[in-house]
Amino acid sequence: MGKPHLPLWRWMTVLLVAALLLTGCAGNGSPKETGAAGEAGKGGDGLFKIRVQSQTGFNEFWVAEELGYLKEEGIQLEYVGLLGASQAVAAILSGDNDLFMNHPDTIVRAILSGAKLKITTPGILDSQEFPHMVYFTKEGSGIRSPHDLAGKKVGVSSVKSCPDLVFTEWLRQNHLPKDAVEFVVMPDKQQEQALKQGLIDVATLHPPWIKRAQKNGGVTMLTNSFEVVKSPAGGSSVRGFSEKFIQEHPDIVIKFNRAMAKARKWINQNRKEAEAIVAQRLGIKPEDCSSFYFDENDWVKEEYVQAWLDMMIRNGELEEGKIQAKDLYTNEYNPYYVEAKKQGAL
């Protein structure tokens, strides 16, 4: 028997979310994974299958799989294919995906469009040493500051997401309008070559592609996300589920949080080994693979979510008071938060 038809209002919500959101942070590589996924739930092996979009950049999921952290909790990730942020969220609403991984601004847009989602799990943060994004120019281009960018083309993996929002924030800080530049959408993986060919004037790269561009040479860093936002929040990428999934599988959310906390901390403490794991999955050399700095907080911190709302408000992408940071996340299914609360440590 097939899956029951969604009511018309639900399909309208799915389509509206997909129309408003574009692809999110992704490395745009060629992952060695396939995506024929079934229903969420226990398989014949006794593991609970969580469906998630296939990964194209540096991520903690592959590390958690390799180290057995997910299996210890009775969880197996099932990859549903390459999805942009909008597609991944729409797939959650239609029941074809379970887990999202986005920046808070994407979740804001989805919730305001009617999606019932909750952030449950920390992901990455930003740092000067391991930046979330680096904006590169071609060596010798003469572009040294935002005031050299009038009419220039900026490569971004998406719009209405982290690459253009952070860049727009940098323009605003320097008293320049968003339309001072033209955003050109293309995968991170293609931007280094496009920059050197003169198809774009600025390339916006995430891990793992930052290190490769620096190693190849011929590029100059214009700025990075940490320098713009001046806070670890500049890289805040979070994970979560639909409210329906959380209500139906609260124990799985708790176990997922436990596995991910282990993986995030292990990556920061064993960076070379983590880069080797991801490089193998992407089919690139470990020495060409850069990595994110992962959030070592055991639960979601409101100030990191709030920073993205503030950035959206400052840049005219969100009306002040329209939504609160506390509306976006829950820590009630995080075992570390629950224990700290029980001990009176909060």
Rank of each mutant, 00 (worst) to 15 (best):
R264Q: 11
R271S: 12
V229F: 13
A307E: 00
S231C: 07
M260Q: 08
K285T: 04
K285S: 07
V238P: 00
H249V: 08
S291F: 08
V305E: 00
E227D: 15
R271Y: 11
R258H: 09
F294W: 10
W299M: 00
P286D: 12
S231N: 08
P286M: 15
E287G: 03
K244F: 12
A261K: 01
K301C: 01
A261S: 05
D251Q: 15
E227R: 11
W266I: 10
S290V: 06
S225C: 10
P250I: 13
A274E: 07
E287Q: 12
I252E: 06
F245Y: 12
E302R: 03
I254C: 05
Y293V: 13
W299Q: 00
Q269A: 13
I252W: 09
K272I: 15
K255S: 07
N268E: 11
S290W: 05
N270V: 12
S290L: 04
A276H: 12
Q247Y: 15
F292L: 07
S237K: 05
Q280N: 14
R271V: 12
Y304A: 10
Y293I: 13
Q280V: 06
G283A: 09
S291M: 13
V229H: 12
R264A: 06
D295E: 05
M260N: 03
Q247M: 15
R281I: 09
K230F: 12
F226C: 08
S231L: 09
K230E: 15
K262N: 08
Q306D: 06
Q280R: 14
R271Q: 15
S290M: 06
K255G: 01
K265P: 04
S291Y: 10
S236E: 04
S242D: 06
F245K: 01
D288I: 02
K285N: 06
L282Y: 02
E302Q: 05
D288W: 06
S236K: 09
S236G: 07
I252D: 04
A259Q: 05
Q306Y: 03
Q306R: 05
E296M: 07
V253H: 04
Q306S: 11
F241L: 02
D251N: 14
R271H: 09
V300A: 00
A276W: 04
C289T: 11
P286F: 09
Y293Q: 15
P286A: 11
A307V: 02
V278A: 02
S290N: 08
F292Y: 14
P250M: 14
D298P: 00
E227A: 15
Q269R: 15
C289Y: 06
H249L: 11
Y304D: 08
I252Q: 03
D295K: 03
